[in-house]
Design a protein around this nucleic acid. Structure first.
Lengths: 260, 260
DNA sequence: CGAAGTCTTGATCGAGGTCAAGAATTGTGG
DNA sequence: CCACAATTCTTGACCTCGATCAAGACTTCG
């Protein structure tokens, strides 16, 4: 584990996050959002295990007590940055990007409100990818060292973190299958249905939503070129499966889309 | 049924170092109820965190105390099987395969001695893929519920499990990048160099080793057809980067391979 | 030994990449 | 508010890498 004195990359203002000592609430100098409380957060049913008692939640509030705003296009963290915290998205959305030394980029995921960021950093003590906001966003900062302490006390939290990491492993397996075996058409269909499902889970319309990412970013996630993404959208439109107008997408025939 | 001793598959000539099963120091005669001891296992430096005390190891021995033999071609677990344990490979190697309902298969990983299997099961309480032995193998059985208890007591173990899961996330990110952005030639080169590195880590020759998987399995892992795998091997041979003879591979120009 | 599985190589084809041009959308400053 | 520049998106024409089909060689094993 990195020592608490591990230096902060200078592109991050030093007041950020993890250097804040073990002190509850009031001190979040860097947050533009004020105090964060899991105990009263509307996203809790998505972020946290259901079986936490009021007492457990109080403990949680001492660990997760600061947030951070990230403007569209800005990075939450970059590959190589020292790892101190994981993040839960409160508002907005992100993409995670890994880069090969030759400059080749690949989008490994899109994350929306209620989802976690940064789990890849535990492994080597430094982040493995860039996390970039697709729109103005707010994240809860979860200092990982403190979380580990908490997880030794609260069995449900411990299990929940294992589940979160395992889910990410399973998600990536599915994405590998998509990239390894599906046609461009099938990939885009799977992508849209997956987004739809996640929006639905959060109480939004599964049928109509706004894409926060460009065709190029979608392509980079699905392993194809932006022109191909555009062509597949046109094909779906022609086949009356979706009605796509720029970033606005309306899924008119989800079953048909699933059968592609 | 289960063979009492892990034997070396005789189809592999003995002159290749890594063919010799990576034998733990203890003589473990058998499956399932055979005694396994992390405290005296030669793989421990690969499987476990270094900072465990003798006392910690004794605790570990109460959790990880049985092993299981899996014959070539047999499954350790299947997608859908209830999740109870994770596994550490003592001897041999495996592939993990996810299947789409339409029958499409994708190999998500190859695991060799010292590596873990089954972490994908935590998420939904059931395994997400099939784990199939590529050769006669032996795994340590690690009951996950007991491991969780242990991790609440032993900080280094707790952190180690987080690291293992995070490593898997990072590994899969890299594989997604490979599948999403690289040419067939680059994929095979990256695959061979990755295997080489893992063998080296275990004290075997990084330059010469035996593939335990078929061209088809490699292709299914790298998102290409077996014919393409074969063609790429021939191309590397022509360019004097590797000397491939069926399953025997000798990397003659690792730098050249990395530059592909 | 023969059968089944695995590997190599050639010939051909097509999905998706590349290049190009123009349309639509978004953002910015006056 | 509009004008205009910068992104982003769509569509067409063409080309390439890797898939597909096919045949034969080699390996493994009962």
């Amino acid at each position: 584990m990195l020592s608490p004195t591990a230096h902060m990359p200078d592109r991050f203002p030093a007041r950020h996050a993890n250097v804040i000592p073990i002190q509850p609430a009031t001190n979040d100098t860097e947050s533009r959002q004020g105090t964060v409380r899991c105990s009263t957060c509307s996203m809790r049913s998505i972020c946290m295990p259901p079986e936490l008692s009021a007492e457990d939640l109080a403990k949680l509030d001492t660990v997760i007590c600061s947030s951070r705003s990230v403007k569209r296009g800005d990075t939450l963290y970059r590959a190589g940055d020292g790892f101190q915290s994981i993040y839960a998205i409160r508002v907005g959305s992100f993409k995670t990007v890994v880069m090969h030394r030759d400059g080749r980029e690949h989008v490994t995921g899109f994350q929306i409100a209620g989802e976690a960021l940064g789990l890849d950093g535990v492994c080597a003590g430094q982040h493995n990818c860039d996390a970039i906001a697709l729109e103005d966003s707010v994240v809860c900062i979860i200092p990982f060292a403190k979380l580990e302490v908490l997880c030794r006390e609260l069995r449900p939290m411990q299990h929940h973190i294992y589940q979160m990491m395992s889910s990410e492993i399973v998600r990536e397996s599915g994405q590998m299958m998509l990239l390894g075996t599906m046609s461009a058409e099938q990939r885009l269909a799977a992508f849209l249905l997956n987004l739809s499902k996640r929006f639905k889970r959060r109480g939004f319309s599964p049928a109509e939503f706004n894409l926060r990412m460009t065709r190029e970013e979608i392509g980079c996630y699905l392993g194809m070129k932006l022109e191909t993404v555009s062509r597949m959208f046109s094909r779906f439109q022609r086949d009356r499966l979706v009605c796509a107008n720029g970033k606005t997408v309306k899924i008119t025939d989800p079953d048909g889309l699933a059968r592609v």
